[in-house]
Amino acid sequence: MSVIVLVEHTGGIIKKQSFEAVQYAAQIAPKMGTTVTAVALGSVTEAEMENLGQYGAQKVLHVADGRLDELHSRAYASALIAAAQKENSKVVVALHDIRGRAVAPRIAVKLKAGLVAGALSYPDTEKGFVIKKAVFSGKAFAYVNILSDVKVIMLMPNTFPPQKQEGKAVVEQLDVSFSEKDFSVKVKSVNKVTGEVPLADAELVVSGGRGLKGPENWGILEDLAKELGAATACSRPVADSHWRPHHEHVGQTGGTVRPNLYIAVGISGAIQHLAGVNGSKTIVVINKDPEAPFFKAANYGVVGDALEVLPRLTAAVKKFKEHHQ
């Protein structure tokens, strides 16, 4: 009857957000009188999988087929369905991220299950199975009740930070008979932006807007990002003007980020920009115009010229780090 969780890994290293998903499931399972079974796909070491016990998984079902190291939405769904059947699961948990969004909807259809995409709360089982999620790009929240017998939850990453405890999961191999069709999408080439922090997963983000005047001024923004270990982002006009690569554009029509800290430099704070960043826990705005709308959405504000403030902030962070080593 267990709650099953899709575990993601990169090159065999389990994603931190998957620990979060396992921990989330471990909060739900006891309420339903059951336990958590994680499902790991592809080449992951025994030790890595056993560690899922530290976040509350009793058991890990491992489908060792190496082809699963790449995302194949059909194959992933087949594996998860096999696991769900074996465990007679009523709840499936995945992440609201690229892989989760390709796989969980397939599972929901196969299991005729209601799905909540981007869950921000544990299910409230008093009035049914009610989960909070953001709607209208963070301008409101909705409380969604899942009516079906089987439930699929896609957890919004970075909502319940994982906390390690004692524990060791039991790893079992699961054999799944895949069809050729399960692998019909072929990966031809992969282009990883290495050495940088991936934006969607970043806990700290430094973002620049048109207020930085031109690409030649991005060095001082990157200096701050490097000092903080942060990812860099930008507003849409900045990407449209090719000052920065397109994947850095956040907002309504770009990426969505939910870091612990979002530092917006020379960005006016248009509603379409806020839509991509308003899930950030803490927002710092640096803008020379005290009337800039972004200040209304910020926790901390600095009214000043970015070109002067940025180097000062970088120096302050550096000094702080030296004292806290």
Partner: peptide
């Protein structure tokens, strides 16, 4: 139907 929205909420104003 497999889901229903029971209610909505606006985000709290920034402190």
């Amino acid at each position: 139907a497999v889901t229903e929205i029971l209610s909505y909420e606006l985000p709290p104003a920034k402190a």
